[in-house]
């Protein structure tokens, strides 16, 4: 389980998180929504230890992330995947090599086993046809799917999705949503999803939380949130949203 308790974080002169509290139970997709600059991506970065809180606690399966040293963080991160907004692929590596990178660095798989695993994951995200292409020559949607394959290749227990459909057309977005649901259902992966998209939240999420001023303003199941009268819930999940 991912848990943030009363987390505070200031970046420069701006207070980003002010008492952020959040629980993501195992096997669930939790969607974080909120206005730009409300601290959604900062929350993800705390969970994976890229940022450390000024106050409060961040735990994954009971282990305090904020006090981990480099070695402990590396161990934790091996159990987690992270999908960046643009995929964040290494440009000089092919799609297959990008996906293989975490395995080459950390696993003891032989070459053929490694290749098989990479093609298996690329197949899962429907990218096996583009294995030899380089990131600059593929579309935004393909980059995201490759990023997702890279996040999944090590069989993580948790995947953090940072705006998984930002800038994508509705058809590609729909494919990404289906993949996120498939990852939860087929692989049992726990997801923390940051998005502005109503479709992404309602299709991928089990629970939705909306941030305001650095803390969760409202939280509930997808049904509860779509029926909620809370102004933020109506703004982000009401009929006119998306």
């Amino acid at each position: 389980m991912i848990e943030l308790r009363d987390v505070y974080k200031k970046l420069g002169s701006r207070q980003i998180l002010s008492g952020m509290t959040l629980r993501v139970p195992k096997g669930m997709n939790f969607v974080l929504m909120g206005p730009s600059g409300s601290g959604k991506s900062v929350t993800l970065k705390h969970v994976i230890g890229i940022l450390r809180p000024d106050g409060g606690s961040v735990t994954v399966d009971g282990q305090e992330v904020s006090t981990m040293d480099r070695t402990q963080l590396m161990t934790l991160r091996k159990r987690m995947g992270y999908l960046f907004q643009n995929g964040a692929l290494i440009n000089w590596l092919t799609v297959a090599d990008n996906v293989a990178l975490p395995l080459e660095e950390h696993s003891r798989l032989g070459k053929s086993e490694l290749r098989d695993r990479v093609h298996e994951v690329l197949g899962l995200v429907h990218m096996d046809h583009a294995a030899t292409q380089f990131p600059p020559s593929i579309s935004g949607g393909m980059k995201l799917r490759t990023g997702l394959a890279r996040a999944l290749v090590t069989n993580p227990e948790y995947v953090l999705y940072d705006e998984p459909n930002a800038g994508l057309d509705p058809i590609i977005s729909q494919q990404i949503h289906e993949l996120i649901v498939e990852v939860r259902d087929r692989l049992g992966v726990t997801g923390l999803i940051v998005t502005h998209s109503r479709a992404c939240a309602t299709q991928c999420g089990d629970r939705i939380g909306i941030l305001e001023n650095g803390r969760l303003a409202v939280e509930g199941t997808v049904d509860e949130m779509t029926r909620s009268d809370h102004p933020l819930a109506r703004a982000f999940l009401g009929g006119g949203a998306d």
């Binding site: 994976i48 960046f84 907004q85 660095e105």
Partner: peptide, 16 residues
Amino acid sequence: TMKVSDEVAALEVMSV
């Protein structure tokens, strides 16, 4: 460029 496009952060979260 890698830093500002999150590629360096991606390496870190992969424990590279």
